[in-house]
Design a protein around this nucleic acid. Sequence first.
RNA 1: GGGUUGGUAGCUCAACGGUAGAGCAGUUGCCUUUUAAGCAAUUGGUUCUGGGUUCGAAUCCCAGCCAGCCCA
Length: 492
Amino acid sequence: MSDIPTDISHDQHAVRRQKLADLRAGGSDPFRASVAPTHFSADAKALYVEGQDNAVTVTVAGRLVTFRVQGGSSFVKIQDQQGPIQLYFRRDVLGEERYGVFKKSLDLGDIIGVTGALFKTKTGEITVRVDAFTLVAKALRPLPEKWHGLSDAEQVYRQRYLDLIVNAESRARLLLRSRVVSHIRRFLEGRQFIEVETPVLEATAGGAAARPFVTHHNALNVDFFLRIATELRLKRLLVGGIDRVFEIGRIFRNEGVSRKHNPEFTMLEVYQAYSDYRGMMALIKDLLTTLCAEVLGTTKIKHAASGQDIDFAGEWREVSYKELIRTATGDAEWFSRSKAEKTAAAEKLGLAIAPAWEEFEITNEIFSKKIEPTLIQPTFVTHLPKELCPLAKLNAEDPTVLDVFELTIGGMEIAPAYSEQNDPDAQREMFEQQAGEEKQNIDQDFLLALEHGMPPAGGMGVGIDRLCILLTGAESIRDVILFPQLRPSDAK
RNA sequence: GGGUUGGUAGCUCAACGGUAGAGCAGUUGCCUUUUAAGCAAUUGGUUCUGGGUUCGAAUCCCAGCCAGCCCA
């Protein structure tokens, strides 16, 4: 009465659904089964004692990633958080029926748990000789190709789980990022910094010059902005007597998406009372050298774009912004030139200058396009022009510049730091004088807090994503963010 | 936002304007220490979408969608 027997052998989804249905019909539903692993894969392998096959029994679980059946015996590999471990299935150990289930019902991608003793194969691989196995999740969709992995960029980002299963480098980058953040926390906690969490939703998006995302709070019936920095909140905590404070927080900026920009990214901001920008220099150098040593096991990293090795252990160069500009333009009197002269000189360097730009914006275009990309080794660029940041203290000798630095590594801005402005009147004036693209919204509540007295402090921001790009040699910020922002697409 | 490259089987990729193929995966056999296991046979396509040109379009043209890269 029906034409059921259609050939589904070409449709892997249908084949796998049929296998699941058969299992359920036979009384075993994988999605109702469970397993209690005793070890992760690498930990299990570490238990093997040289020359003592079958001495240690373990239960491990993971996803089937290779499947090699050879008649009555089979080698497969499963993969867990720590990586792969090989399993050895034998008909004469499992019995005819269970071995048949193993061969017929399991597919690449299935999640299984197995119990068995460790031994070493002829070729020297520590392997579990399986006494019993349980299917605990049936994969109804096939894995990507086993050798080439998944390379379609769109699918890598949209289905990151597949990328993590089949591309070991992606998994390694994820693990490295986790260790980076973990080290930063331990480092700062070791110096008595206190970690806090401040609001993402703000009535005024301050602390940086950037376009914010806007959202709406229904109950209060007001628009809120997603924060573009954590700076002004953390400084309120300095006022409140938290002398060493940091936040590792998600920041949102409603701007372009590129190899170096994701609309949401992670920033460490750290503030230390009774310190200043020079104190932050020592702090970041210590943080990054210990970070490299611990996470990478070396203080030298390869920088593919320049072909250089970046050496974190050496002396870090310190050079003022003005000196870099004078050198790059070959003009010792650059800062007393007229706007017309600056424009002409910048255009001669091949830069496009908009007529509306302020003079400092012309100069800064030279810095960001012609100078910053060449600063490969760790470089503290100090004393930026006062227009570039309203939240720092002016330099005592040269009030046209700030007591700040911008740490640049691999041609990328990694960490800006300031001697923080704590004079409420000077702060208000700085806010009001802001011009051009650097204009920030004025946060009146913040100024009120300053009037209550904020201790002198050094403060610093560190872009975690960019730091991870540097440490992993990634080509794009999307390689260090698990789920980068993409245009939504209808799932199939 | 502009320029540019790409979108073909589950995945990785081929295919002068002339019957859309391979490897892996799948299916069926054989195979009890394999390492991208092997051997034999074999299934599988709305060529991103919509128009157009043409006797004939994966291929050429236009528009759109999505992604990568470069630029702003």
